[in-house]
Design a protein around this nucleic acid. Structure first.
Length: 98
DNA sequence: AAGATGACGCCCG
DNA sequence: CCGGGCGCCATCT
């Protein structure tokens, strides 16, 4: 079956291990769609059963606001990811594509 | 067809 | 660290 842009992105998101995080920009590039960071957002909204909480902004910043942001912090912390303020240390928790 | 919208990213002051 | 400005691009008025 044909693999659209969103499918490619969701596949990449599903490859992020528990306890690690990646960024919108990296997901876009890793899935073969460099520069399409904004579209990763659409993919996450449309996708189901994907670990959306493991996707954060550049530099490890939490971009979600309000209730959703609260939920994301909750989920990440439950996986052992430390969050200082609104940032996550990518040197420690950032997933490196290989 | 034309403008507005974002869970974005990068650079600059 | 904090805004402000600009580029980006599928989707939605």
């Amino acid at each position: 079956m044909k693999r659209g842009m969103f499918s490619d992105m969701l596949a990449a998101v599903r490859r992020i291990p528990k306890g690690r995080v990646s960024t919108y920009g990296d997901i876009a590039a890793a899935s073969g769609h460099p520069g399409a960071a904004r579209q990763v957002v659409w993919a996450l909204r449309a996708g189901e059963g994907v670990p959306w909480h493991r996707v954060v902004g550049a530099g490890g910043r939490i971009r979600l606001t309000g209730e959703s942001g609260f939920e994301q912090r909750l989920r990440l912390r439950s996986e052992g990811v430390a969050i200082t303020g609104d940032r996550i240390d990518l040197k420690v928790y950032g997933w490196v594509w290989k």
